[in-house]
């Protein structure tokens, strides 16, 4: 895709915006539509569009596969870890009041935020990993094929 100047310039502009939007959706999910699932997908779309336009190799330099695989597991661990934490502090599993015993409502806020981060991280990881797996097998398309 060396010749597609417009595509490459536009993509460079877009990728940053997409990441910013993903973070907004992630952390503003309490107040407006959005949350971990959507943010994860949007984040992954950012990496995928980068990989599509600037070849898979460059995308893998930005976000190496070993890191993707770690991240997939990390998200589930964050989520389950929140539950285990509340268990250890004497509450029921996934009861976020444990995070801030003096102000349960505040604890709920924090808990939702942490759990959503876990979800977002896992979804990002899985989507990017799936994209890498598919793209790594695709035969290299020549420019004439487009």
């Amino acid at each position: 895709m060396r010749h597609h100047l417009i595509l490459r310039v536009i993509t460079k502009l877009l990728v940053g915006t997409i990441f910013l939007f993903a973070l907004y959706v992630q952390f503003h999910g309490d107040y407006s539509p959005g949350g971990g699932f959507q943010a994860g997908v949007i984040m992954a779309v950012g990496f995928i569009i980068y990989g599509l336009v600037f070849t898979l190799k460059k995308a893998k330099m930005v976000f190496p596969p070993w890191l993707v695989h770690k991240i997939v597991a990390l998200g589930v661990l964050i989520y389950a870890g929140t539950g285990v934490y509340s268990l250890l502090t004497g509450y029921t599993f996934l009861d976020y009041s444990a995070i801030d015993p003096h102000a349960p409502v505040h604890g709920q806020h924090l808990g939702i935020l942490i759990v959503e981060v876990g979800v977002g991280v896992t979804v990002t990881g899985v989507m990017v990993a799936i994209y890498y797996a598919f793209a790594a097998r695709a035969p290299n398309l020549r420019d004439q094929d487009w």
């Binding site: 949350g35 699932f37 994860g40 997908v41 979804v123 799936i130 598919f134």
Partner: peptide, 20 residues
């Protein structure tokens, strides 16, 4: 449904992988 959509795409990709 929100969670079902994301799970749906994950399982779809599993199907696509099987197809490949």
């Amino acid at each position: 449904i929100l969670t079902a959509i994301v799970v749906g795409v994950a399982t779809t990709s599993l199907g696509l992988a099987l197809m490949v």
